[in-house]
Design a protein around this nucleic acid. Structure first.
Length: 552
RNA sequence: UGGGGUGUAGCCAAGUCGGUAAGGCACCAGACUUUGACUCUGGCAUUCGUAGGUUCGAGUCCUGCCACCCCAGCCA
């Protein structure tokens, strides 16, 4: 049984069963006024995966009806991010709402001819006064009863550019006393002289969302128009437009709750502010919850979709724990990422009973969870690096790593015992003198004694310097002015959440890794190779830490 | 306040014609382990916002109440 269902799937199953539809056609309709983020990924996933499930069609459609906010650069970035996410182009194609402007205009004429729309001369303020309030009905516009001929003439002249910006609107004639504010004779066309990123200066009147969107859906033969819950109040207007124009294949709108994630800012406005004020290096800064940021950070589309699917599709307001995302990412990377060694804060270890001029190779598995991943040869020599976190001078019993006179396994190699702690004059550790159990090699002790701890290591001769960057949260910054302390925006004020290790040591082979390759740095987490945007040097971004159950 | 939507564990979320609360994350305990990872095993809602009602039986039906979200752009 397929347990991966939701209420939208139920609706579609029902439509298919009852013959209301024989084919499923969905769409993702972003406005090109910003970059896609993890919240957009939910809308993409719902529309795309639903179409896919029924071997249907999925369109990408730019909802570009507001020329003042939109930009071609966002069109390109959205195309790129969407293709990355769904692994290719949408099978239905890529469309632009603005390409239907001529159709929208013709339909507006039709509404006028039917007596369902009128040209209104009220100013924005006057219209607001006339609209009434939540508890008070609105007043009808004095221009509401103009003749069809006059409305037609005026609307044609609006298009022709005879009136200044904002001087007139075309309004749907519905009901000024409707309890749903959206039905109180909403404006469906406005006059704006602005350069459109795609249509240029061809138009000076632009249709509004509530009018344009159902037309776009209908023209593309969308069967199920899936959008987020704040449009629920708009559905009666959506249906009104579809019905008045009289489409043969009327689309229907269904709503789902948007995605909120703990510690993560999801508002385009604030993301834009971060970019514009230079708090982050750009929309694709690896701390950003944008798709480009997540991609750079090392997140995979499959983990993102797995997360969205597991979080579920419903209508409740929800704030999903980011640890679910991290779990999904770990689960995938645990299976697929190659194991490598990286050491954040190196401490030198000298094996006193190991020849200074000797180097031997130990074979370590590339992924113990995947035998097909093979092994790699790692050099071992007298001087090694281990991580500062793996040594403690006054260690409690439960500390299973290296301590004075204690034994520990060097992963895949010898068991060593720390015999001496050499310190500098300032008290810091210069090096640890150890002896290795050379007889047992990388096997078990012959006398049956237990060595509980295993630590990772690197030959000091072979190790390479590297920069490692650790992000605690997807998105962090020090200060963002008036950002509201609302649960929607998460607890983003975490100045300690970016740690940079500039003197980390890594395996030599990692130098040649390609940007975008993902690794598990043993015991330290999953990392993705990246290039620092300012220094242009290779860095490793931590995608997600390993689960830490370290207890003393 | 008028309208619309939603309330099931710390966080998400299934719950079909009313039949005796899925699953995941998180957490806790234990086993295993040459990554304190992974894996495995066990635990984790006498109760579904709340108060009543109908019924042999209610998360599911009825009534009242409460809480939260959305709507008064010529934004989407």
């Amino acid at each position: 049984m397929d347990t991966n269902t939701n209420f939208i799937i139920d609706i579609i199953e029902d439509d298919l069963k009852n013959g209301r539809h024989t084919h499923v056609h969905t769409r993702f309709p972003p406005e090109p006024n910003g970059c896609l983020h993890i919240g957009s990924a939910k809308a993409i996933w719902i529309n795309w995966s639903t179409a896919k499930r029924y071997h249907g069609t999925f369109n990408l459609r730019f909802d570009d009806t507001n020329p003042v906010k939109e930009d071609d650069s966002f069109v390109r970035s959205i195309e790129e991010d969407l293709s990355w996410l769904i692994g290719g182009l949408p099978n239905g194609g890529i469309f632009y709402g603005s390409d239907y402007f001529e159709k929208c205009y013709e339909f507006a004429l039709k509404l006028i001819d039917q007596g369902d729309a009128f040209v209104c001369d009220l100013t924005a303020e006057e219209m607001k006064e006339h609209r009434g309030t939540l508890t008070q009905v609105g007043k009808e516009s004095p221009y509401r009863n103009r003749s069809i001929a006059e409305n037609r003439d005026l609307f044609e002249r609006m298009r022709a550019g005879e009136f200044p910006d904002g001087a007139k609107t075309l309004r749907a004639k519905i009901d000024m006393s409707a309890p749903n504010m959206n039905m109180r004779d909403p404006a469906i066309y406005r006059i704006v002289r602005a350069h459109h990123h795609r249509q240029g200066d061809k138009w000076c009147i632009y249709p509004l969302y509530d009018y344009a969107h159902p037309i776009q859906d209908a023209l593309e033969r969308i069967t199920h128009s899936l959008c987020s819950i704040e449009f629920e109040n708009h559905r009666p207007l959506y249906d009104w437009v579809v019905q008045k124009i009289g489409f043969d294949f009327p689309p229907h709108q269904y709503e789902f709750a948007r995605l909120n994630v703990t510690h993560t800012v999801m508002s385009k406005r604030y993301l834009r502010e971060l970019v514009e004020t230079g708090v982050v290096s750009g929309w694709d800064d690896p701390r950003m919850p944008t798709l480009s940021g997540l991609r750079r950070r090392g997140y995979t589309p499959s983990a993102l979709f797995d997360f969205i699917q597991r979080a579920g599709v419903a209508k409740n307001y929800s704030l999903v724990d980011i640890r679910l995302l991290e779990h999904c990412m770990r689960e995938e990377l645990g299976r697929t990422a190659l194991r490598r060694v990286a050491i954040y804060q190196p401490i030198k270890v000298r094996i006193a009973n190991y020849p200074a001029d000797k180097t031997e190779m130990f074979s370590l598995p590339n992924n113990p969870e995947d035998a097909n991943a093979g092994t790699r040869a790692v050099p071992f020599s007298q001087c090694l690096w281990i991580d500062a976190a793996d040594f403690m001078e006054d260690a409690p019993n439960k500390f299973f790593r290296l301590k004075p006179d204690g034994e520990v396994r060097l992963m895949g190699a010898y068991i060593i015992r720390c015999t001496e702690v050499v310190k500098r004059s300032d008290g810091s550790i210069e090096e640890l003198i150890c002896t290795a159990d050379l007889e047992t090699g990388n096997g078990m002790p012959t006398d049956g004694r237990k060595v509980k701890g295993t630590i990772h290591w690197l030959s000091a001769d072979a190790a390479v310097d590297a920069t490692l960057r650790l992000f605690d949260n997807l998105f962090t910054l020090e200060n963002l002015g008036d950002m509201p302390a609302d649960k929607n925006y998460g607890d983003y004020l975490n100045p300690d959440s970016l740690q940079v290790f500039d003197n980390a040591k890594i395996e030599p082979a990692l130098q040649d890794a390609a940007v975008g390759e993902r690794f598990q740095f043993v015991r330290n987490g999953y990392f993705c190779k990246d290039v620092d945007s300012t220094t242009e040097k290779p860095v490793f971004n931590r995608i997600v830490a390993l689960k830490d159950t370290f207890k003393l």
